[in-house]
Simulated scan of single mutants.
Amino acid sequence: MTKRDWTTAGAGGEPLLRALAGLPGSVLTSFLLTLADLRARERSPADVLRQWEVDTFTGLAAVDLRRLLRAELRLLDAAAGFEAVELAPLAPLATCAAVGPTSQNKIVTTMRGTEVVSDSTNVLALECARRLRRDPHTPVRLATCQRVVRAQEVPRRPGYAHHFKLFSLATAGRQTRDHGFLVDALVEHVRTLLRGFDQLTQEGFTFGRRSVRLLATTARNAVADRIAEQLAPVVDLARRPLDHDYYDGLRFIIEIEAPDGSVVPIADGGAFDWVARLAANRRLVFVASGLGTQLVVLLFGGSASLQSRK
């Protein structure tokens, strides 16, 4: 029996898909925009409201905005050594898929050759590559808070949705002797995130025991040893092997005990080869990390209120 492809079934099949893919970009964009206009004209106000009520890609965020903004300001204060930047909600098409094992099907693609940002660290990698191509000798340190959208299945629990806020850090520059730049950058990210939790306690957040899992490939074990040596005095640290090809040999995960006693992996980061590939310079190092601020407010913010659809 021939397997039916749901992406083309009933719409002309593979030949039509290939014909559309082969159109010049401007022609395809015009076609898709015209199609969207026709479909929009067929929708009634009731249709729009119905989608707003049930579509998890739309609607209100799960936290109070004032509470969320205060938390983000505290995190940015903790990252005083990073330049704070505001990113656009859109990024070039394949911002994630071109440099990592990410399927475009998990990303909201627009009809204008762009995509809705699904991971701020990938966009920060673009900006780091742009700057380092102009001046490869000046390291780049960037921080941002951004609402991102991911087109993948989400847990059926309060506070989880296709869109959420991320606090992200990115560091890029030329590798130095004995991987010194990489070691310093990764240590700085972990220390900055831990300092951010200290800042949040001044806003009434309550955190339980904190710990860090440091994962490394065999080739990166010596580098991980040096990172662990610097972090062990300030936080409980465990070493683990890394077998995930999304990272360039090093990854860290910050875990915090929640009020209900569960242990939550609340932040993670590591080394990536994205900037080296984007700038076509193998000597460039890129370290990025992310923290789900929306989840932090919900789990550790105490008086944070959860928005609900009725």
Results as ranks from 00 to 15, higher is better:
P155M: 01
A21R: 01
A9Q: 01
G81W: 01
Q152T: 15
I266A: 06
L75D: 05
L69P: 08
H137S: 15
A94Y: 14
R66Q: 14
V234I: 15
A224I: 10
D268T: 11
G113N: 03
L215K: 11
Y246G: 10
L124R: 03
V187H: 01
V140Y: 03
L284V: 15
R209D: 15
E83T: 15
Y247D: 06
L298N: 04
L215D: 12
T7F: 00
P139L: 08
P139E: 06
V116I: 15
L186P: 05
A172Q: 08
A91T: 13
K165L: 14
D273A: 10
P158M: 00
D178F: 09
L87D: 12
A271K: 00
G261Q: 03
Q152A: 12
G292I: 07
L17P: 00
Q307S: 03
L32A: 06
A80G: 05
V263Y: 03
G113L: 08
R130F: 04
A78V: 11
E127P: 01
L23E: 12
A267T: 12
G59N: 04
G81H: 05
P155E: 01
Y247M: 13
L28G: 08
L17Q: 06
T2F: 05
I256P: 01
L68S: 13
K3P: 07
R150I: 07
R209M: 13
I254E: 12
Q175C: 07
K3M: 10
V123Y: 02
A228I: 09
A172S: 13
S26V: 15
L299S: 06
R209W: 11
D260Q: 06
S120T: 13
A36M: 11
S44I: 13
A40M: 03
T110I: 13
W274E: 08
I266E: 01
R240P: 06
G270N: 01
A279M: 05
V183H: 00
F205Y: 09
D64A: 04
F197R: 00
G270P: 02
P241V: 14
D243K: 09
L193F: 09
D236N: 06
F167S: 04
Q146L: 11
R157H: 03
P136I: 12
V116R: 00
D47P: 04
R157L: 03
D119A: 07
I253A: 04
V48C: 07
